[in-house]
């Protein structure tokens, strides 16, 4: 039951997000671009950090950065 409710809640959130995205994408394409772009930039930066950790593990810890 709880799982079902969680899925329902998640589904509702998704629908609201989708409707919001459609409206903002229609009325204010640049606002939409900002939201998507900011999330992307954060993810890329975070991915860069994770990649860094992977690179450090590959080379010696005293190696050059």
């Amino acid at each position: 039951m709880i799982i079902l409710l969680r899925f329902a809640g998640l589904g509702l959130a998704l629908v609201v997000a989708l409707l919001f995205a459609v409206f903002v994408g229609d009325q204010g394409p640049w606002y939409f671009a900002w939201a998507v772009g900011t999330v992307m930039i954060i993810l890329v930066a975070a991915a860069g950090a994770v990649l860094f950790d992977a690179q450090v593990e590959q080379y010696t810890p005293e190696g050059e950065f």
Binding site: G37, M40, I41, V44, A45, G48, A49, L51, F52
Partner: peptide, 22 residues
């Protein structure tokens, strides 16, 4: 603080290049 600085640099550089394009 090399460990610290190199990680910060990496994140900032990637953050910066995409932002500059935008």
């Amino acid at each position: 603080h090399r460990e610290f600085a190199a990680r910060s640099f990496r994140m900032a550089a990637l953050f910066g290049i995409f932002s500059t394009v935008a």
